[in-house]
Amino acid sequence: MKVKGTAHRVGDHIDTDAIIPARFLVTTDPEELGANCMEGHEEGWGKRLKKNDVIVAGENFGCGSSREHAPISILGAGVPVVVAKSFARIFYRNGFNMGLVLLEVGEEIDKIGDTHEIEVDVVVGEIRNLTTDETIKCAPVPPFMQEILNAGGLVSYAKKKLS
C-alpha cells in the first residue's frame, strides 16, 4: 500500500481530547467523527485534511483516553496514515485494530515539514518527501501486529479464532 498526500504537522503530546473532544463521543459513526477530527486541537483545523493526506506528529501522539473514536475520526477525515516521532500505547494498539497505519520514525520526523508532499510506502516502511527529495526509513511493524494486520485487523483475527 502506497499513500501520496500532503503532510500536516502537529506538535508533541497531541491527546485524544484534541483529536476528538468528549462532546462528540455520542456517536460511533466514522463520517460524523471524521467531520470533527482535531476539533480539540484547533477549531476548524480538520477542514484542511483532504483524502489521503497524512498527519505528521511529534512525540507521544494519541496520549490520554482509550477512545477508539480517535483513530476512527482520523480515518473518517480521509487520513489513512499517521507518522510520528512516537505514539502513546493505547492509541498504537487502537490504530492497528482500526486499520489506521501508524509509522514511528523517531528524530527523523523533522525531515517532514508542514504542507510537504510525501509518499508513504507502508509495506517497505519508507517515506519519500517529494518536496525535499529526502527518504526516511521507518521502524518495521512488530511481527505479532503484522499477523493481526495480515488477518485484516483484529475483528477478522478474532473471527478466525472463534470459528
Binding site: 490520554g64 483516553s65 482509550s66 477512545r67 477508539e68 483513530p71 493505547i90 494498539r93 487502537n94 485494530n97 482500526m98 483484529l154 475483528v155 483475527y157 478474532a158 479464532k161 472463534l162
Partner: peptide, 28 residues
Amino acid sequence: DSHTCTYGGLGAFATGMGSTDIAGAMAL
C-alpha cells in the same frame, strides 16, 4: 477506559485498551 490502571492499587495488572481489543477479550 484508560484509567483502568486504577486497580494496580490492589495489585492487579490492569490496563486500558480500545473498544475492539475489549470486544476481542469479551469474546475470547
